[in-house]
Computed example of a mutant assay.
Amino acid sequence: MSEMQSARRGRPGYDQQGILAVAVAAFNEYGYDATSIGMLAERLGLSKSAIYHHFGSKDEILDRALDSALSSLEAVVEEPTAGASSAADRLEQVLRGAVHVLVDQLPAVTLLLRVRGNTEVERTALSRRRTFDRRITALVTAAQDEGALRDDIDASVASRLTFGMINSIVEWYRPGGREGADRLADDVVAIALDGLRKR
């Protein structure tokens, strides 16, 4: 049988990343609990066993997707501070990096922001999110201590409001629209940090 005939029979030879992308789209569309392996197999044109060849369970698929989003966000906080001489500069870099992660990994981050802790995988992801949030709050506190940001706003409130704005990107941003990631990051930094900077 030729490759063309095989493709027509609905067996496109998805690799792990391809299966993951289709699964994340389905989880976002129907919800994780309502999406079955059978539904994924139908969407992919594969057998369930073909999916299980790549992933041991639906939980493993979820874990891989959430880990991808979280690892990218964590890397933004951990990457070297090129040109950042202050906590405020570092905070700006982190905000810009987070916007890029949301734009680059929109489906996976959307999924991350929708988890509620119903499974062990989700609880682990939420724990990592809380650790990330604490690191952002610590960065805001350091920038306040430097005198770069106003200190009449609680650091945890400032970081939650700022990331609430960034996280809202998943609800309305469409790739290929008027603003790319760089311009969007400029807008986020202007709105978030101009309101927080000391006058």
Rank of each mutant, 00 (worst) to 15 (best):
L46H: 15
D59S: 01
G83F: 01
G117E: 07
E74V: 13
R90V: 06
P107D: 04
V121N: 09
E74M: 09
A88N: 02
S86Y: 02
S86K: 05
L113P: 00
R114P: 00
A69I: 10
T124R: 15
A98S: 15
A98G: 06
E122A: 06
L46F: 13
L73C: 05
R123H: 06
D67I: 02
V121E: 03
R90D: 10
L95F: 11
T119H: 14
A82C: 10
R64M: 08
R114L: 06
K48Y: 02
P107Y: 07
S49M: 15
D104V: 02
Q105R: 15
A88Y: 10
V109D: 01
S86G: 10
G117C: 11
A87I: 10
A125N: 09
V99S: 00
K58S: 14
E79I: 11
R123V: 09
S72A: 15
T119I: 15
V101P: 00
A82K: 15
E92F: 09
V109M: 08
A108T: 02
A108M: 10
E60T: 11
G117D: 04
S49P: 04
E92P: 03
R116M: 09
A69S: 05
A65N: 12
D59T: 01
G97L: 12
V115K: 11
R90Y: 08
G97Q: 09
E78A: 15
S72M: 14
E92A: 13
A87Q: 07
N118M: 14
D63L: 02
D89M: 10
V99R: 10
S71D: 15
A75W: 08
P107V: 05
E92K: 09
I61V: 15
K48L: 08
Q93K: 06
A88R: 12
T119P: 06
L46N: 04
R90L: 05
Q105K: 14
H53A: 05
S85C: 13
I51K: 08
G117L: 05
T124F: 01
E78S: 15
A65R: 04
R123Y: 07
G97F: 09
A98K: 08
L70W: 03
S68D: 01
S68Q: 13
A87Y: 02
R114M: 11
P107T: 09
I51M: 07
R114C: 03
I51A: 03
E92G: 03
Q105A: 10
L73D: 00
A125H: 03
D63S: 12
L91I: 12
G56M: 01
L91K: 07
L70F: 02
S71P: 00
L113A: 14
G117A: 14
L66N: 04
S86H: 07
F55H: 09
T119E: 13
D104H: 09
D67K: 06
I51D: 11
K48D: 00
R123I: 01
T110P: 02
D59R: 03
L91E: 07
T81A: 12
G56R: 15
L113F: 08
L62A: 11
G45H: 03
S85T: 08
L73P: 00
V76N: 02
V121F: 02
G83V: 04
Q105E: 12
A84V: 07
L113T: 06
T81C: 14
E78R: 14
I51R: 05
A87L: 04
S71C: 08
H53Q: 12
V94P: 01
N118F: 05
L112K: 00
E79S: 13
S72K: 04
Q93A: 13
L106F: 12
R90K: 12
P107I: 10
